[in-house]
């Protein structure tokens, strides 16, 4: 679950973000404590705390004194916005870059995506 080579606190923050985007953790509900993250992932609690604090700095989580960390209202929409931008930079950019190398035009790429998504829908129906 924790992979090598990438800072663990980034992975913890990513996982909380994914849970918020997927709706596993709803807005205005608590996230697990730092110690729970540490025990579950078998990582140093300071590292888990760093991941949680990163989301507090971003305004995704906020602290209720004496209770714990909660998901802020509007966090899901903001995360989806940020992730959409990352999707463009991390996937669409390299996709077009590789396509250009092979002499495939952006229009042809769009055509491939349409065919792929229709076969995928058929595949998942059967």
């Amino acid at each position: 679950m924790i992979e090598a080579g990438k800072p663990i606190f980034v992975q913890i923050a990513d996982q909380i973000e994914n849970d918020i985007i997927d709706g596993v953790i709803k807005e205005e509900t608590p996230v697990p404590s730092t110690n729970e993250f540490a025990a579950f992932h078998r990582i140093n609690p300071a590292t888990a705390g760093k991941g949680v604090n990163r989301l507090v700095e971003d305004g995704i989580l906020y602290k209720r004194r004496g209770i714990g960390m909660f998901v802020a209202t509007g966090a899901r929409q903001r995360l989806i916005g940020a992730r959409t931008e990352q999707f463009r930079a991390n996937f669409v950019g390299p996709l077009l870059c590789e396509a250009a190398k092979l002499g495939i035009t952006p229009e042809q790429v769009a055509g491939m995506i349409r065919i792929e998504s229709s076969t995928e829908r058929k595949g998942s129906n059967s």
Binding site: A4, G5, K6
Partner: peptide, 10 residues
């Protein structure tokens, strides 16, 4: 810091 070392090289 262990976290700084992790991911400090590629």
């Amino acid at each position: 810091d262990a976290e700084l070392l992790r991911g400090s090289a590629s």
